[in-house]
Design a protein around this nucleic acid. Structure first.
Lengths: 216, 216
DNA sequence: TGTCTTATGACAGTAACTCTCAAAAGATGG
DNA sequence: CCATCTTTTGAGAGTTACTGTCATAAGACA
């Protein structure tokens, strides 16, 4: 009685990660990926040239040679062009790989920092561009927060399982949120300084500052 | 050459706080305030009855007996109906009143907790209603984050002045963000539990949990 | 009273979506 | 290679949040 899994994935679900993992793609899937890339590339070209507000979805669609309908099939909202966050699965895997007897704080540190390092290593330039838009455009900034909430929920869920605490545990949620807030400040700082310095190091620095502040 | 200050305040600036402070209001100002209230009351009535999405701005305007143009003159966006955050000035005053030699953490605590207590005491019911919408409607949730960023910036600015650190100081920003994140979790928790318990106490509990987590 | 300022409403326009439907193009079995 | 079945696409119409302009109405003030 469970609904049958869809035969084809809808284009919104495609991510760079999945793309790398599933090697033999049919022509259809390859085309979809290509379209997705074309749309995003066109959009970023236009954003760079004339800014966020001045770039309409219709114009992006035209530039990418698809119909506006198709645009929305690939990106449900304009903001989704910028957000697309493939990081959660990476962090989740990293977190689950930590030894169960480790302290919550240390597990979080070790789940977040290496993941961050990997991401910056592979797509740092794109990320910088995104962060810039993210800081400039309120609409995007808003949306990205929702992504952050998803990250928080994921981390809380995994940690709750591991420690036997309920998923609604206030202390756990507060801790995770605080850690994410600090890291997010670090990323902000990094992008505000044009990507100078190492994000992971900045992140550690931010976490240490919080620790100091809280301890005395 | 500086532009002359506007003779009358635009309706969007009116807040309950100012209303209480400025006693002798002209007829015009009283009418403005009344309109503002009427619009918001109408909106909340409709939200309660039929939900956020099903309630269009046109309908709200009709219910409040004003034109849609007027609606937007009072509330630049639909979300603004719910957000309106008069808390920053209160917190700022509280923070500035702290002795300069106090630790950053303690000052933050003492700026936030009593302010929270006062707010809940005076308008707790309204706040609960708002928090519920805030958690249910992504659009509002998004917007409220921007308000939180403003709060953060305000706190960071004041603290930076006091400690002589630059306003961009990563450590300071991280600490403030972490504290706000923890408090925000507490408020979330409170509203998720239908307002049972004392927000300020929950907030303290959250802060303690973060402190423990960070210290080991 | 008359004048000056401000608030309002009517109206037209834009841009981000949503929905529906028919046509085009990839997949599949013979 | 053909026929059929499924998925992707584009066209078009509709909705809603929001912006800008302008004439008019209503409060302030001398």
């Amino acid at each position: 009685m469970t609904p049958a899994p869809p035969k084809s994935m809808d284009p919104r679900a495609a991510t760079d990660l999945e793309e790398l993992l599933s090697a033999p793609l049919g022509l259809r899937e390859r085309k979809k990926l290509k379209t997705r890339r074309a749309i995003r590339a066109a959009a970023f070209r236009l954003f760079a040239a004339q800014g966020w507000d001045a770039t309409t979805v219709d114009r992006i669609a035209a530039e990418a040679d698809v119909s506006p309908s198709t645009f929305f099939r690939y990106f449900p909202t304009k903001e989704d062009l910028v957000i697309t966050d493939d990081y959660d699965p990476v962090m989740e895997a990293a977190l689950r790989a930590r030894p169960p007897d480790e302290s919550v704080m240390e597990s979080l540190r070790q789940a977040i920092l290496p993941s961050l390092r990997r991401i910056i290593g592979s797509e740092g330039d794109d990320m910088l561009l995104r962060m810039r838009l993210l800081n400039e455009v309120p609409a995007i900034r808003s949306r990205s927060t929702l992504e952050m909430i998803r990250s928080r929920d994921m981390l809380v869920t995994v940690l709750a399982e591991r420690t036997g605490r309920p998923a609604g545990d206030l202390g756990l949620r507060a801790l995770v949120s605080a850690v994410l807030a600090a890291c997010s400040e670090a990323v902000d700082y990094w992008s505000a300084n044009d990507g100078r310095g190492n994000v992971a190091d900045l992140c550690e620095q931010a976490l240490n500052a919080v620790a100091e502040g809280f301890s005395g």
